[in-house]
């Protein structure tokens, strides 16, 4: 045990942890990202080509990735 940790806590009083996306906007952000992800994914599914991999699939996968994480949080499973 390190008794200096309490001082670390006191010293950090001015910088509370604030997440990138607040709890109140998690659902909206997650929903938009998932909608975007599925739309782009759907567009890629209709027109599969090497060009569309970076143009549609990569943004779709990114939107899905962050959308899924935020949707987990939005429904109360704080991952």
């Amino acid at each position: 045990m390190d008794s200096s940790l309490h001082e670390v806590w006191q010293a950090a009083a001015g910088s509370p942890f604030v997440p990138t996306v607040g709890k109140s906007s998690q659902f909206l952000v997650a929903f938009i990202l998932l909608l975007l992800g599925f739309s782009l994914g759907g567009a890629f599914a209709l027109n599969r080509s090497v060009v569309n991999l970076p143009v549609l699939a990569v943004p779709a996968a990114l939107a899905l990735a962050f959308g899924v994480v935020y949707m987990f949080c939005a429904v109360g499973v704080y991952v």
Binding site: G37, F44, L53, A57, A60, L62, L64, A65
Partner: peptide, 12 residues
Amino acid sequence: PLVIFGSAMAVF
């Protein structure tokens, strides 16, 4: 997010 990105890319 990177793990999910990787999985989604694998599907695409």
